[in-house]
Amino acid sequence: MQVKKTLPKPGAFLILLLGTLSAFGPLSLDMYLPALPQIQANLHTSSAAVQASISACLIGMAVGQLFIGPWSDRVGRRKPLLAGLVVFTLTSIALIFVHSITFFLVLRVLQGLAGSAGQVLSRAVARDLFEGERLTKFYATLMTVNGIFPVIAPILGAGLVTIFPWESIFVTLALIGALLVAASYFGLPETATISQGPAEKLDFKSVLGNGRFMLNATLLAFVYGALFTYIADSSFIFQKDFGLSTAGFSVIYAINGLGIALGSQLAGRISGHLSEQNIARLGFFMPLVSCIVLAINALTINSLIVFTVALWVVVMFVGFNSTITTAIAMESTSKNIGTASAVLGTLSQLVGGIASPLVGLFGSNTAMPMIIMIAVFETLGLVLLQFSGSKTPVTH
């Protein structure tokens, strides 16, 4: 027997709450990016080791989703979400008192594990509520709210580390976590269809065997690879190569965050007018062109203005591609929605977790490693679309 809860209307509070829950990436990563050089110096470690803390959090998020998503298909969305938020808050508090890179990395993994609840379940709740073009538009709205956090987070982080030690970043994250616990407990009703009989076997096989789902999940993973290549290296390029201050980098990073929000809205607006394949090709082709501009600039005049504008285009299409690929992937499944959301998020963050330290190994004194890696991910997306075009439905 299954009981379907009365679904809430997607009002402003629900949109804001789900958007904030889906923003655990920016909350956990973007806020402390301006502090990376300070953390490196304070913990007496290398830039590659500090960049690895990004991967540690991402890997935690990736693994955590594989447990939380299927768990939510069995017991509903609320219990796993509240458990994750509580652990995220406690881990953020623990990070305040750590001054060893080893323990710092371990706690970042745990923070990622707990924070994955917000990411995987915000997608699942949205899929519980919507389908079709409405789902795409709702994901676009969520990603627009999500895009606000890359604007706010680095500015807030820069302001905090300018006045206070880097530990203040995690004090703030703990406070945000506590507020989300309260908001979710009192403001988020159950949206899942919950089994009241014996627990059904979790079916990863049906999710992994869904060609349309896996195509878009893989495309989203390439988008995340490009995104976290940018996240891991941009602070070092802008501050060391171009000589910007922490505040200057934060302003540029915030403008790029607005680009993600703009790209998400653009995807939502054209979703009913173009085919999936054409939208996806546009989403990977345009940033690849921008990578060519970035490479030419790096090898010739190395202009900050050219670099900033071309990179903004790359980041803007992250929002564009994320909205389209997430909506199509989640719409392609009507059962095991939490499990599908888990696979989607895990694959994306594993690729992002690999990309972050990889770009760091090539050095942070030039932009070329970042440019080349982003171009590789965009090219892989175009190649996959080319080979899958004749086999994948293109109607939305």
Score class of each variant (00 low, 15 high):
K205F: 10
A35I: 00
G259E: 05
T172S: 12
Y185D: 11
K4F: 09
L179R: 04
L21Y: 14
A192M: 05
V106Y: 13
L219T: 06
T325Q: 11
K335R: 13
I237C: 14
T218G: 13
A340G: 15
L33R: 04
P357R: 06
L288D: 00
P70V: 00
G157K: 00
Y185P: 05
S356C: 03
M61T: 05
S250Y: 00
L219K: 01
P393F: 03
F149E: 00
F284G: 03
G64E: 02
G363F: 04
L258K: 03
Y253S: 15
A182N: 07
T308H: 08
T162R: 02
F97A: 10
V106E: 07
P287H: 02
Y253L: 13
A342P: 04
L129W: 01
P8E: 02
Q40S: 13
I163V: 09
F317W: 01
A182T: 08
A126K: 08
S28R: 06
P37F: 02
L58S: 01
I354G: 05
I354D: 12
L208K: 04
T366W: 14
Q349T: 04
T172G: 06
K205S: 10
N210M: 08
V125G: 08
S122W: 03
T339L: 12
G132L: 06
S22V: 15
V309K: 04
I374Y: 07
E378H: 06
W166D: 01
I328E: 10
Y185A: 14
S245A: 08
G257E: 01
V318R: 08
G132C: 09
T6C: 05
Y224L: 15
M368F: 07
L208H: 05
G225N: 03
L173P: 09
I59H: 08
L299M: 14
A280G: 10
F103C: 06
S47Q: 15
G353K: 12
T229P: 12
N278A: 13
L18G: 10
L180V: 05
L258E: 04
A327I: 04
V306R: 08
G338A: 08
S28H: 05
T333E: 14
V343W: 11
R78M: 06
I152N: 00
W71H: 02
A56P: 04
P287R: 06
T379S: 10
S28G: 13
T162S: 11
Q265T: 08
V98L: 07
K137A: 10
Q239L: 02
L156N: 02
V171M: 13
L208R: 09
F138W: 02
V314D: 09
D203W: 02
S122D: 09
A140E: 06
F104W: 05
G263A: 07
M214E: 12
F284K: 08
F362S: 09
I155D: 00
V313N: 05
N146G: 08
L17G: 07
T229I: 03
A41K: 12
S234L: 11
A158G: 00
A295L: 15
A295C: 10
R269S: 13
S100P: 11
S100L: 12
N146Q: 14
E131S: 14
S55A: 12
Q119N: 14
L274K: 10
A232K: 05
A62R: 12
G132W: 03
